[in-house]
């Protein structure tokens, strides 16, 4: 490749956690590397780097995706939310709070991806059954917990989000 024409860098613009971001990147830059290394948003983790484990899940235009299997240039013009974008000021997002309350993590490595997946699930299916939660987590691996408390936390977060409406008919 040494004699080939130099690779053209590509200018990209996106909204990350409500902040506009513009940068020039090598086309082969993965979205996860752009988030972690260029934007220093290291809450998104790289686990397997082969789109199996889900530690790198972020939201692109409202849908959960694996940021290790997407190029930064493919996210040009998109709205991105990472784990850093969930909490409002000092208040954890309800799913984060539920993970804390239900002891849904041990080492914590998979947690950012688990939480981002769960937020997407609840956004599109506000009252998932345990079976639906487990099916949804097919792309998120946890090697510590055995998933039980993760499923409990997601169910609890969904119930909490639903509770105010049902309490005030």
């Amino acid at each position: 490749m040494s004699t080939a024409t130099p690779i053209t860098r590509v200018s990209i613009t996106m909204i990350v956690n409500d902040q506009p971001v513009t940068a020039e990147v090598d086309p082969r830059t993965l979205l996860v590397d752009f988030l972690r290394e260029t934007l220093q948003l290291t809450g998104t983790h790289v686990g397997c780097d082969t789109s199996q484990c889900g530690a790198c899940v972020v939201h692109v235009d409202g849908l959960s995706v694996k940021s290790c299997s997407m190029l930064a240039v493919q996210a040009d013009g998109s709205r991105i939310v990472t784990i850093e974008g969930l909490a409002q000021a000092e208040d954890l997002h309800p799913v984060q709070q539920a993970f804390y309350t239900q002891h849904a993590l041990q080492c914590g490595y998979c947690t950012p991806g688990m939480v981002m997946s769960a937020v997407d699930l609840i956004a599109h299916n506000p009252q998932p059954t345990d079976r639906e939660i487990r099916a949804w987590l097919k792309g998120n691996l946890c090697r510590c917990t055995g998933y039980h408390n993760i499923v409990s936390a997601i169910a609890a977060a969904a119930r909490a989000a639903h509770a105010p409406a049902s309490a005030n008919p």
Binding site: S51, V57, L63, V65, K66, S69, S117, W136, K138, G139
Partner: peptide, 9 residues
């Protein structure tokens, strides 16, 4: 096919 995140892409 795949998982929810793969099906989104």
């Amino acid at each position: 096919i795949g998982d929810p995140q793969v099906r989104h892409r």
